[in-house]
Nucleic acid binder design. Structure first.
Length: 478
RNA sequence: GGCCUCAUGGUCAAGCGGUUAAGACGUCGCCCUCUCACGGCGAAAACCGGGGUUCGAGUCCCCGUGGGGCUACCA
């Protein structure tokens, strides 16, 4: 059986959006699953769209996401060059060959004539005017240096069908397809032509791309047929939407892969999540590493309908990855975000990290979870009131001095000992544990909710600060 | 406008002629518990509409409605 070769062919526009990344991921996964090769090709034939640094973003994103390509501009391969702007001579050669084969023709019409063919809505197809030019006329114009393009010669009758692995049979009447430009007047090919030539020359067996090409695929097949080349298998992917009406896009200001990473979504979670957008595994297991995705991926699980990018679910997955990390792994990813907190450097790092790991889904949430440690000041006495704990400011007045005494004399100022001592205090006073614990925690933090209980907060603050805060709280209550 | 295409809970989705219509996220409730979170348990929540075909339709066909795409010397 022929080796499977898939490719990811982005246009370097300076932004790797989620939909693109998913296309790359599926191409990669399918190649891996089939033991084939995954190729990266840069489609930069439109010089007007050149964006500095865009190519690097593509390399970096794929590398960062763990999507490895077997051949590509930066690593080479047997089918290079892998950048279309470096293949201009190849396209010209094949365009001329297609003209000889009757699948294309020279067109010398100027913009004015083309525009005159369009109606008030800008709709109107080219009328094959130059197809009727004689060989002599063409040679004459060419020799005279008249600017030209090469157009595809689409039959005026009949229709083209192909079998898409996701969408099934797709048929388009040739009369609905215009004689599109294959080679621009600047000598560069359009996407329509370059992708066909390259996919063939690079031995691509499975073309995986967005559904926007669904209806233009028959015209590509016309070229494969005219050249006498074998058509590839097509796998079109449904779009990823921002909402029911808009696609996820840079224009809409939607998050790119890098934006998501910068916010602190775990990379593996991002990949895992986008794999699930438009594809579902046979089993009910949703959390999957790239390795597992490679093993479980199948084209039959690809969905046809557009899917909406749901950040809450990504959040959840990201949290799952965080919770599955070792303390060391969490520290490695969390540190940059921890450093943004006012509390950074002022408390035991390991302790902070430990309380954060079960409470954070996205790393950027870290500062807001612990900044309160440094925002201590006023304490709303109403906070001492808690129905379930059966506590209020009066209880606090009774609890706090005794608690301060306990903390002051405690031998080991650590969570377990602190907890035991405070519970013992409650017993001694004939109170519920919660009455003591709640009041102490409020006094220590001034917050209704904290990422840890009274004893944990005390341990984190240390004896000195805990006693200072207790004294401060008592003053406010007096 | 023409053509292509899609349509199951709020979201992702399973289903591929006969099911109490999975599962996940989110939401809500309960449990655990020194608050919050984690974890555990549970609940509410869906087949776009109309015609067919069939003993039987979420599943097949047609029409409608709604969404997306293409219709560039962009990809």
């Amino acid at each position: 059986m022929k080796e499977v070769r898939t490719r990811f062919a982005p246009s370097p526009t300076g932004y790797m959006h989620i939909g693109n990344l998913r296309t790359a991921l599926y191409g990669y996964l399918y190649a891996k699953k089939e033991g084939g090769k995954f190729i990266l090709r840069l489609e930069d034939t439109d010089s007007k769209r050149y964006v500095a640094g865009a190519v690097q973003i593509i390399y970096d994103t794929l590398k960062d996401a763990g999507i490895r390509y077997d051949e590509g501009p930066d690593i080479g391969g047997d089918y290079g060059p892998y950048i279309q702007s470096e293949r201009a001579a190849i396209y010209k050669e094949y365009a001329e060959k297609l003209v000889e084969l009757g699948g294309a023709y020279y067109c010398f019409c100027d913009k004015e004539r083309i525009d005159s063919l369009k109606d008030e809505n800008g709709v109107g197809r080219y009328d094959k005017h130059c197809l009727r030019l004689s060989k002599e006329e063409i040679a004459e114009k060419l020799a005279a240096g008249v600017p030209y393009v090469i157009r595809q010669n689409v039959p005026e009758e009949g229709s083209g069908s192909y079998e898409d692995l996701v969408y099934g049979t797709v048929t388009v009447d040739f009369k609905d397809i215009e004689d599109g430009i294959l080679l621009k007047s600047d000598g560069m090919p359009t996407y329509n032509f370059a992708n066909v030539v390259d996919d063939h020359l690079m031995g691509i067996t499975h073309v995986i791309r967005g559904s926007e090409y669904l209806s233009s695929t028959p015209k590509y097949n016309l070229m494969y047929d005219a050249f006498g080349w074998e058509r590839p298998t097509y796998i079109h992917l449904p779009p990823i939407m921002k909402n029911a009406h808009e696609k996820l896009s840079k224009r809409n200001g939607d998050a790119s892969y890098q934006d998501l990473v910068d916010k602190g979504y775990i990379k593996e979670a991002i990949i895992n999540y986008i794999a699930l957008l438009g594809w579902s595994p046979k089993s009910n297991q949703e959390k999957m590493s790239l390795r597992e995705l490679e093993e479980n991926f199948s084209l039959s699980g690809i969905n046809k309908s557009p899917s909406i990018f749901d950040e809450p679910k990504l959040r959840w997955l990201s949290g799952e990855y965080i919770r599955a990390m070792s303390a060391e792994e969490f520290k490695a990813v969390a540190l940059p975000f921890l450093q943004r907190s006012k509390a950074y450097g002022k408390y035991d790092e390991a302790k902070l990290l430990k309380m954060l790991q079960s409470r954070v889904d996205v790393l950027e949430d870290i500062p807001s979870k612990i900044d309160f440690l440094e925002e201590y000041g006023d304490i709303d006495s109403a906070l001492y009131f808690n129905k379930k704990m059966k506590s209020d400011a009066e209880i606090a007045k009774a609890v706090l001095p005794a608690a301060a005494e306990v903390l002051k004399n405690l031998e080991k100022f650590e969570n377990a000992e602190l907890y035991a001592a405070l519970v013992a205090l409650a017993q001694e006073k004939g109170m519920k544990n919660g009455q003591v614990l709640w009041c102490v925690r409020i006094a220590l933090t001034g917050r209704e909710n904290t990422p840890g209980g009274a004893s944990e907060m005390a341990e984190l603050l240390g004896r000195e600060r805990s006693l200072e805060r207790l004294a401060h709280a008592m003053e406010l209550l007096a």
